[in-house]
Amino acid sequence: MSRIRQLDVAVSELVGDGDVVALEGFTHLIPVAAGHEIIRQGRRDLTLCRMTPDVIYDQMIGAGCARKLVFSWGGNPGVGSLHRFRDAIQHSWPVPLEIEEHSHAGMANRYTAGASGLPFAVLRGYAGTDLPEHTESIKTIECPFTGEKLAAVSAINPDVGIIHAQQADREGNVQMWGITGVQKETVLASKRSLVTVEEIVDELEPRPGSVVLPKWAVTAVAEVPGGAHPSYAQGYYERDNDYYQRWDPIGRDRERFQQWLDTEVLNVERSAR
C-alpha cells in the first residue's frame, strides 16, 4: 500500500548505497527533484538505469552517485553532449563509470520483461550491430517455432523505481498522462517504488489515455510540485528548454559543475532547479 511521505524521508527509506535504481520519464515527467534528493543524501555505488540519462543523470554521475550506468541514449536532447557522463567514461571523473549500453527498443523490452516477471524479453533487434559484442545482457535466441534468429535481452528489476506523475489521491493512487514512456513498466518491474507528483488531490478525475497505478502497486508517494523541472509536466508547466541550453557550459567544466552542485543542490533543503 503506498504511503504518502516527504521526499527526503521517502528517498532515505527506499534508496541505499549500491542499489540498482531507475529514474524514468521519457523527456516528459523526469523525476529530477528525487534525483537531487539522492545526490543530497550522498548515495554511492548506484547502478543507474535510464533509457535517456538526460541532464539529471549527468548531475548524479558528476556528483559521484553512480558506479554503473545502464542506458540507450546519452545526450542532452536538442543541445548536444552530456559532459559529466563523457568525463566519467573517458576520464573516470569523479569516479570510474561502468556502462551497459542498449537500444531504446532493447531497454523498453527489458523493463517489460521485468514488469512481467519474466527473465528476458525477445525482440527483432540489434541485428548486424556491434552492441551485442560489448553488452552481456544481449544474446541471440532461436525461435522454437520458426527457427528465426532473434535478440534476447535480460529483464531489468531495479531495487527502486522512481517516476514523476501529475497527480495522486490521498490514498496514494497515481495518475499520469501525456507521454508516459516506460514509467508503468519501471514501477511494476521494481522491488520498491517512489512516485513524486505535482499535487495530491481529493479525487482523480479520469482523463483520456491516462495511466493509473493503483495504490497497492506503489511503495511511496511524495508531493513535489515542480519536481520534473527542467523537463515538463503536461497540464502544469512546459519544458524549460533554456535550462537544457544553460546546462551545457556548466556540465563542460568540473569547477563550474562543483559550484552548481554546492549552491543548487547540496546546500539547499530542496533544489530550486
Binding site: 540507450s72 541514449w73 546519452g74 545526450g75 553532449s81 573517458q90 537500444s103 527483432r124
Partner: peptide, 18 residues
C-alpha cells in the same frame, strides 16, 4: 576507451532494421 563518446543508439538500430 574511445576518443569521442557519442550519445549512442536510441531508437536507430531497430528503425534501421524494421
Amino acid at each position: 576507451d574511445p576518443k569521442v563518446r557519442l550519445p549512442g543508439a536510441g531508437g536507430a538500430p531497430e528503425i534501421a532494421a524494421s
